[in-house]
Simulated scan of single mutants.
Amino acid sequence: MAEYQLTATDAVIRIADQALIPNDEANLDWQAYQQWRADGGVPDPAQPTINPRLDTKPAKTAAEILGAA
């Protein structure tokens, strides 16, 4: 696990405290992130976005899956 995680935007998340660090050259946390990258750090990838429209059906029970319901 890396120290930082990418997001769907140009901000990053610092894993230790879940701080959202904006892409702002004046931000000391952003500067620390850039130095970490320059030193060879590789951030974790962004979490995939979840489309709630794909999860509108209620889950089937085991009995329904097995055809016993």
Results as ranks from 00 to 15, higher is better:
L54I: 00
A63G: 11
I21D: 09
Q18E: 04
Y33K: 07
T49C: 00
L20P: 00
D24P: 01
A69W: 00
T9V: 03
D10S: 08
E25I: 08
I50E: 01
N27S: 15
A69C: 00
Q18S: 12
T49V: 12
A26D: 08
A8R: 04
L28W: 01
A59M: 13
E3I: 02
A46L: 10
T7Y: 05
G41E: 10
V42F: 00
W30Y: 15
A68R: 11
I13D: 08
A63N: 12
A69E: 03
A63W: 02
T7A: 07
L66P: 09
A38T: 05
D10I: 00
A32H: 05
A69H: 00
Q35T: 11
P22D: 00
Q47G: 04
W36T: 13
E25Y: 05
M1C: 09
D55L: 14
W36D: 11
P43G: 03
P58I: 02
Q18H: 06
W30I: 02
Y33I: 07
K60Q: 14
Q34Y: 05
T9G: 13
R37W: 10
A11Y: 04
T7L: 09
T9D: 15
Y4F: 15
A32V: 10
R53M: 08
P22G: 04
A62H: 12
A2R: 02
P52E: 07
K57I: 03
A16V: 11
Y4E: 12
G41L: 11
N51K: 01
A63H: 02
P52L: 12
Q47C: 03
N23A: 15
W30L: 09
Q47M: 12
R14S: 10
L54F: 03
D29M: 09
P22M: 03
T49I: 05
L20S: 09
Q31S: 06
D24I: 11
L6M: 14
R53D: 15
R53L: 09
W36M: 09
T9R: 08
P43H: 05
A59N: 13
I50D: 01
P48E: 03
V12T: 04
E64A: 14
A63T: 02
Q34G: 06
N23D: 15
V42N: 11
A26N: 09
W36H: 10
L28P: 04
A11Q: 08
K57Y: 08
D55E: 03
I13S: 06
G67F: 04
A32F: 03
R14E: 12
E3K: 12
T7G: 03
E64V: 11
E25G: 02
P45A: 10
P48G: 04
D24M: 11
I15K: 14
T56C: 00
P48D: 02
Q34L: 15
D55T: 02
D39I: 01
N27F: 06
N23I: 00
P48T: 01
T61R: 13
D55S: 10
D44Q: 13
A8T: 13
P22K: 08
P58E: 04
A8G: 14
Q5H: 03
P52D: 13
Q34K: 15
T56H: 02
N23V: 07
D55I: 10
A68W: 11
D55P: 00
Q35K: 12
K60E: 13
D39P: 01
P43Q: 11
T9N: 14
N23P: 06
G40W: 06
L28H: 04
K60H: 05
P43S: 13
T7N: 09
A46C: 13
